[in-house]
C-alpha cells in the first residue's frame, strides 16, 4: 500500500519543481567550478547540505580563500539554512508517521522544494502513504539536483552572463510562485506578507543572520495576528 505513493511523488518532482531545481543547481555547479573547487565537492555539497543559500555561502567563502576562517563560513551557512528547523517541525505532523523512526529516511530531504510541495499535496494523500510520497518526491529532486550540479560544473565555461543570470533568477521566481499559490488561504497569506515586510528589516542586519531574523519576526507577527483573529 505504502509503495504505491512513491511513484506519484516521483512524478510530481519531475514537473516544475524538477525544472526549477535543475536550473538552480546548474548555476551552483558553475559557481563551484569558478571558485576552483573539484566536481566531487559540488556533488557532496548538493547532497549533504541540500539547501542552496548555505551552499552558496561556502562557495563565496572558498572564492575569498577562506579569509574569515572556516568556522565563520560554516556559521554563516548554517544560519541561512536555519529554516530547516521550523520546516521539520511543521512537516512532521503532516507526514503522519506512526513512529518517528519511520521518518529517518525522509529527514535529509527536508528542504524548501520538497517541503513546499509536500505541504500542498499531502493533505490529499492517504495518511499511511504520505512518507512514501515524500520519499518519492525528495529522492527524485535530490538526484536531479546532484546531476544538475555536476552538469553545471562541466558546462560552466560555456555559460554566458545572461544564461547565468537567467538560471539564478529561476530559484527565487519558483519560490515566489510556490508562495503565490498559497495566497488564497489566510494563514499562509499572513505569513508571506509579514515575511516580505520583515525582509526590509533584514537589510539592516549582517547577511548571515538577516534571513533568520526576518523569518522569526515576520512569522511570529503573522502567527499572533492569526491568533487574535481566531482564524486558521
Amino acid at each position: 500500500m505504502t509503495s504505491n505513493a512513491f511513484l506519484p511523488g516521483l512524478r510530481e518532482a519531475l514537473g516544475a519543481p524538477g525544472v526549477a531545481m535543475a536550473a538552480t543547481f546548474l548555476a551552483f555547479g558553475a559557481a563551484v567550478q569558478e571558485a576552483g573547487l573539484p566536481p566531487g565537492w559540488a556533488l557532496l555539497a548538493c547532497w549533504g547540505i541540500y539547501g542552496m543559500p548555505g551552499q552558496l555561502v561556502l562557495v563565496q567563502a572558498a572564492s575569498a580563500g577562506w579569509a574569515g576562517g572556516v568556522g565563520i563560513a560554516v556559521m554563516g551557512a548554517v544560519a541561512v539554512n536555519a529554516r530547516f528547523l521550523p520546516m521539520a517541525v511543521s512537516i512532521t505532523p503532516v507526514l503522519a508517521a506512526r513512529n518517528r523512526w519511520y521518518l529517518l529516511p525522509a529527514v535529509p530531504f527536508i528542504a524548501v522544494t520538497p517541503w513546499a510541495a509536500a505541504m500542498r499535496a499531502l493533505p490529499a494523500v492517504e495518511r499511511p502513504d504520505r512518507v512514501a510520497w515524500f520519499l518519492g518526491f525528495g529522492l527524485t529532486s535530490w538526484v536531479v539536483a546532484g546531476f544538475a550540479s555536476l552538469s553545471g560544473f562541466f558546462v560552466a565555461g560555456a555559460l554566458g552572463g545572461e544564461a547565468r543570470a537567467a538560471l539564478l533568477f529561476v530559484n527565487p521566481l519558483y519560490y515566489a510562485l510556490l508562495l503565490a499559490a498559497d495566497l488564497d488561504r489566510p494563514a499562509p497569506r499572513r505569513a508571506v506578507l509579514c515575511g516580505a515586510a520583515a525582509a526590509s528589516l533584514a537589510l539592516l542586519l549582517p547577511a548571515s543572520v538577516a534571513l533568520l531574523a526576518a523569518g522569526l519576526a515576520g512569522g511570529t507577527v503573522a502567527f499572533l495576528l492569526g491568533r487574535r483573529r481566531g482564524a486558521r
Partner: peptide
C-alpha cells in the same frame, strides 16, 4: 507558529533575492 516562521523565511528570501540580490 513553526509553519508561519518557515513561510515568512521563504518570503523574506524571495524579497531579498529580488530587491537586493548578491552575485550574478
Amino acid at each position: 507558529w513553526a509553519t508561519a516562521v518557515a513561510q515568512a523565511t521563504l518570503a523574506a528570501f524571495v524579497a531579498l533575492a529580488i530587491v537586493a540580490p548578491a552575485g550574478a
